[in-house]
Amino acid sequence: MASTEETVVGEAPGGLSKEKLLELLRAMLLSRRFEEKTAESYQMGKIGGFCHLYIGQEAVAAGAIGALREDDYVITAYRDHAQALVRGMSPNSVMSELYGRIDGCSRGAGGSMHMFDKSVNFMGGHGIVGTHLPIATGVGYAIRYRQTDQVCLCFFGDSVVNGGPFHEAFNMTAKWELPVIYIVENNSYGMGTDIDRVAAVDELFTRACAYAGKRAEQVDGQDVLAVYAAVERAAERARTEKRPTFIEAQTYRYLGHSMSDPAHGVYRTREEVAEERERDPINTFVDKLTDAGVLTDDDVEAMDKEIIDEVEAAAEFAEASPVPGPEEVYAHVYSDEYRGGPDGRDAWR
């Protein structure tokens, strides 16, 4: 628990300590500024491949990961920069990975979609829709197998609920009472397809009721405190009862599905995006904190400035980091020595 002087007196938002509130704000701001820089670098050609930005959804990662312990596990899909940063990976390492450099968390092998950092139990970064849900089930299985009280937090997008891995993973997780928290980031669109157009039942949390029963709930994913509270409850349940929870966080992404896609167009209007920006998770949280007297506008500005500097420094660090040399090609295909090819020699190299 926070000490007395750290605790906000009076109407403390969410009943949280000042330290925790600032941590949540910082996490969201870092995600936002980092990704704004990412978009800029992408447009300058410094980042390649598919690059899916999280801008607009920051409250989900910040609130959910903020409610975990350091020894818990986190796993997510390909829209993974914010989760990586909030989990404690350094902006230098995430940005270097985006730049395809040797100082990247995955030594330039993974890129935007495959952030990993074993030191903070960040387990990726998975590029195939739905494929990491059973992996999270396996992490939960290992936790019970070893009889620790850790939890595994698994983020995924709304499209996942229509595929097989969702149901296979949920069934096993619920049946064997595994300490996994599944949180769907429902931003309403699977790439450019409105979830209403392809889901028979589009109130997503109800899709999990078959497996999780009353342990399936819906929260406002633009409210970091609501997400935090839901995951905190779920984590407690996982630690004590060894039961999974399913949380639907209703959120919104401001930009296109990836950097290759338009922010609006056939599937949604400019007006809709503008309207959603009105309930921006960072602005509303800042208002809440300043109204409660937790911090002033100047404090927010100072924090923002510090974060922008940190992000700029990360981009400079990435720019200066070496590109992976040829010795990296075979380096991590197997745990033991490998030189490629059927006879240890790739053709004509």
Partner: peptide, 23 residues
Amino acid sequence: DTPIAENGFAGLGVGAAMVGLRP
């Protein structure tokens, strides 16, 4: 004993292996 859900229980194995078990 698993349900008849090959992708699910194979993926479960991958997750358990990533955190150090040997499925």
